[in-house]
């Protein structure tokens, strides 16, 4: 891909976003929707800039980020560990497989009331929900990546004198890295979504709570701000993960 094509792609991609903003502005300007229901985009972004300057809104962002990271980290650690174990040990595989088959399609959000009853209304229940939701994509792509590591890579390492128990960390883990990181990317997006939803359902702080408070008082402007914030957070975190990914996978083709 040359530079000219890349520029064209970026410009092309900006069209629908610009179009969306234009339609939004147009609808308001033409009086098709009252500003109380659909505030003009300029107002929303100004309100957002205003809020970002306040300590209290930043507190909400931090609360959300804390739960997001805690849940996501637990999911990464558990997902990679269980996925690798299931890929290398037939016994663990036989146990994990049916359980995952049952738990993966289960709508985790339905467990949320149970988590509330067991863990209380604080951080713990939300973090557990985020972890439970982000776990399966990471686990499954780790399992898939680890069980498709090329046999000859493992043999090459064994012939060079690597003892069997080190093969896991020296060959299988790095060999599965592309797939694992793809799983982490899906898991991260899910974490963003789930933490926000959990905060909307019951919470006293966080971005989801900001949205619910605004909805109760019919403040349309304040309802848009947390939504745009979570979208931006998602983009930024995804960008960071992408950077980590292209560093870790610099040797692999097609990153």
């Amino acid at each position: 891909m040359n530079g000219r094509d890349a520029t064209r792609d970026v410009l092309l991609g900006l069209i629908p976003i610009a179009l969306l903003l234009a339609i939004w502005q147009g609808t308001v300007s033409l009086g098709l929707a009252p500003p109380t229901l659909l505030p003009p985009p300029g107002l929303v972004f100004m309100r957002m800039a205003q809020l970002l300057a306040t300590a209290s809104f930043n507190q909400e962002i931090l609360a959300t980020l804390f739960r997001l990271f805690a849940g996501f980290s637990i999911a990464v650690v558990l997902g990679i560990a269980i996925g690798l174990a299931a890929a290398v040990s037939p016994a663990i595989n036989a146990a994990v497989r049916p359980v995952v088959r049952v738990l993966a399609p289960l709508p985790k959000v339905a467990l949320y009331p149970a988590l509330l009853l067991l863990l209380g209304f604080g951080h713990e229940s939300k973090i557990t929900l985020v972890a439970a939701d982000a776990l399966f994509p990471i686990l499954l792509s780790t399992y898939y990546g680890a069980s498709t590591v090329e046999q000859k890579l493992i043999w090459s390492a064994m012939a060079a004198g690597t003892p069997p128990r080190e093969i896991l960390f020296k060959v299988i883990l790095p060999g599965a890295a592309p797939s694992i990181l793809t799983g982490c990317r899906i898991g991260l997006v899910i974490s963003c979504i789930v933490v926000f939803l959990a905060e909307m359902i019951t919470s006293t702080d966080g971005l989801g709570h900001v949205l619910i408070t605004a909805a109760r008082t019919f403040q349309a402007v304040d309802m848009f701000v947390p939504l745009i914030t979570i979208s931006l957070l998602g983009l930024i975190l995804n960008g960071l993960l992408q950077a980590v990914r292209s560093y870790l996978l610099r040797g692999f083709p097609e990153v």
Partner: peptide, 25 residues
């Protein structure tokens, strides 16, 4: 390349969270 950036922006937004706004409309 036309749709990708838009989808990337929408991706991390929880769709169920749009419920209050959509209900408003």
């Amino acid at each position: 390349s036309f749709f990708n950036p838009l989808l990337m922006v929408i991706y991390p937004v929880p769709k169920a969270a749009l419920m209050p706004i959509i209900m408003l409309w």
